[in-house]
């Protein structure tokens, strides 16, 4: 027992709360109104990884695992929709509002994975450094400006399409340096992404991959969409061009995938990378 808790001024209570793990913070917030108001003001917890696993196992449950700096090693599970809505999502909201999440992964391709991040409360912006997998557009709108550093999206257009143009203009993505994007299709041959990457001066090894059906889609289409670019190398299957950073170039490559499907790959490479090393350098 520590009977002097109520005699501590708020700033010293906050000094204590900053050492509490996530579970204890949630529970302290459940004791009374005063503490409930205090807990969100405490220094944010560092969550090293938050992995959401909403695969369609029995009854569409939600599971996630969390590893934090204050010793949390949680594997909560919410077995049905009612539990997810009443406890799962409020807990996720609490985590995102009271933590700096170094890595959020939501890798399942099921629609339910994206659903898990819909409708979360956000009185404070979410601070997430790396995101992998998928999330709905309104989730990104709740994220703090410039929070993302690494972005790794898969199957963005599989069911509920995200507008990549709008997404890349969101404040939360403006400091993202390393990107890995995979689309089913991309309406402008990835030109909007390429232009944004040049503007953000993203890191080498950033890649984007999308597919088109039909032989009529070529590298020329990409070059047209890009407008004025300073081309370094041009073949039927590849174009290499300069960026604003003289240490970096970009390439767009077209490869036959399967049947009549062609795979297009945009990549940021070092300006001094030799052609023979493309394959080994761009690891998709």
């Amino acid at each position: 027992m520590f009977e002097f808790w109520n005699s501590l001024p708020e700033e010293l209570k906050l000094e204590c709360i900053k050492w509490m793990d996530l579970k204890t913070r949630v529970r302290l917030g459940g004791t009374c109104h005063k503490e409930r108001l205090l807990v969100p003001r405490a220094e944010k917890l560092i969550v090293f990884s938050l992995h959401i696993d909403a695969v369609s196992f029995a009854n569409g449950a939600l599971r996630f695992s969390l590893d934090s700096s204050n010793g949390d090693d949680l594997w909560p599970e919410f077995k049905n929709e009612d539990q997810i809505q009443k406890a799962g999502k409020p807990l996720l909201s609490f985590i995102f509002q009271n933590s700096v999440v170094h890595e959020l992964s939501n890798l399942g391709t099921d629609d339910r994975n994206r659903e898990m991040l819909v409708g979360l409360k956000s009185s404070k912006p979410f601070d997430i450094r790396k995101i992998a997998g998928q999330a709905p557009f309104n989730f990104f709108q709740k994220c703090a400006p410039n929070c993302f550093r690494i972005v790794d999206f898969h199957n963005l257009c599989d069911s509920s399409p995200l507008s990549i143009e709008e997404l890349m203009e969101l404040p939360s993505f403006q400091a993202a340096k390393l990107w890995r994007l995979q689309f089913k299709e991309c309406h402008d041959f990835g030109a909007c992404v390429a232009k944004k990457w040049i503007q953000l001066d993203v890191d080498v090894k950033s890649t984007m991959e999308f597919r088109y059906v039909g032989e009529d889609r070529t590298i020329n289409d990409f070059v047209k969409e890009m407008g004025a670019i300073d081309i370094v190398e041009r073949t039927d299957i590849l174009v290499r061009f300069k960026t604003r950073n003289q240490k970096k170039h970009m390439t767009m490559r077209r490869m036959h995938w399967v049947n009549e499907t062609y795979l297009f790959t945009l990549a940021v490479i070092p300006a001094d990378l030799e052609e023979k090393n493309y394959e080994s350098y761009i690891d998709l």
Binding site: M1, T24, T31
Partner: peptide
């Protein structure tokens, strides 16, 4: 002081910190 709260339920926390 934070460690005193570790693993406690809200009801236990009320007793620990006299809340």
């Amino acid at each position: 002081v934070a460690n005193m709260a570790q693993g406690k339920t809200p009801a236990q926390l009320r007793r620990v910190y006299l809340l």
